[in-house]
Amino acid sequence: MKAGKYAAGFLLSLLLTGISFWVVTSHSHFREFAVIILFASALLQIVVHLHVFLHVDSSPDSSWNLFSLLFTALIIFLMIAGTIWIMYNLGERLN
């Protein structure tokens, strides 16, 4: 049961990794398209990993784990988005 879940998770992550590398190495796409595929498959793979290997789910047992993960995700978003916004804005004004 658990082993099956692990196997499925492993195969899925192989597949997603394959897609990511393929999108970049095949050189045949629009840049925007490739970027979207890259981010989508990375995000999906992270979710698979969290769920399959780190047992994050919506059961009451792990509700605080989930809460802390979501809070961290929010903070990460603020930090990355804010930093890129500020620093790219500064960079443009310097040029």
Binding site: T17, S20, V35, L38, H49, L54
Partner: peptide, 24 residues
């Protein structure tokens, strides 16, 4: 947990650093 967690970080590394960096 630690080991699987490092995988997640690696996913971000190869996506942002290597793959995104290799897109022309």
């Amino acid at each position: 947990m630690f080991w699987h967690f490092l995988d997640i970080v690696w996913i971000c590394v190869f996506t942002e650093v290597y793959l995104l960096g290799s897109l022309s």
